[in-house]
Amino acid sequence: MEASSPIIEKRIVIEGIAVIGRYLPDLLQALLTNVQLLLALLAVGFAIGTVVALLQVYAGHFLGVPAFLYEWVFRSIPALVLLFLFYFGPLQFGVSIPPFFAATLALGFRSSAYQSQIFRGAIQAIPQGQMMAARSMGMSRVRAIISIILPQAFRLSLPAWSNEFSSVVKDTTLAYAVGLNEILRHARFITERYYNLAMLAYLTIALIFLVLTYSGNWSLGWLEKRLRIPGLEMAGVSGRGRNLSK
């Protein structure tokens, strides 16, 4: 008996690329769902993450402790478990949440917990003196946070935030597990029709995500440069750099 023939032959690769090409518009269409989910996740994560960070830094025990609990819970539970909890959990009680919404909540809350730590670090990097100066000029605490602290904190958090972006981009494919018709789900049209093309199909998706992550990070890098204020970079936050520039 001869050894089993290799599954992937040269002929199959060439024909396979033609087949993938035919399915590419479909895959890119499905990628739109991933991008929509990405935007939803980043928005939910940003909004809740900011609030949690502020509570952790400025609030007393009454609000600070729940904020720490929230961050601890959503950073500790695996993403897939969160997805199943949010989708299949309510289903047990007859409540059907659309997969997109369930994924937005589960992965959005998770991202908010990570983002909160990015923002907390950035807020704490702003010297205490700035708050004192703002207060001595008659600003309220809230006013000072909104006008003085947060704008600087957001700028400082961009490098770390672009890391979180890269992570969340990839998380969107996890929503496949709760039935979202995103790009990985659409790859089944190829893999179940052409059994030999599983490798090529998944390589194509890998390539698409390489491009997506790269362009996202490039844009954030550009934003970082645009928003950079000479003398107020992360290195200058210690206070020394700023004093020298004055």
């Binding site: 989708y87 299949f88 289903l91 007859g94 409540v95 059907s96 659309p98 997969p99 496949y176 597990a177 709760v178 039935g179 018709n181 789900r185």
Partner: peptide
């Protein structure tokens, strides 16, 4: 609508 097998029966069951 295209629906992943793992959630198909449950989404009909729930009336969604």
């Amino acid at each position: 609508q295209n629906c992943e097998w793992s959630i198909l029966v449950s989404s009909v069951q729930a009336g969604a």
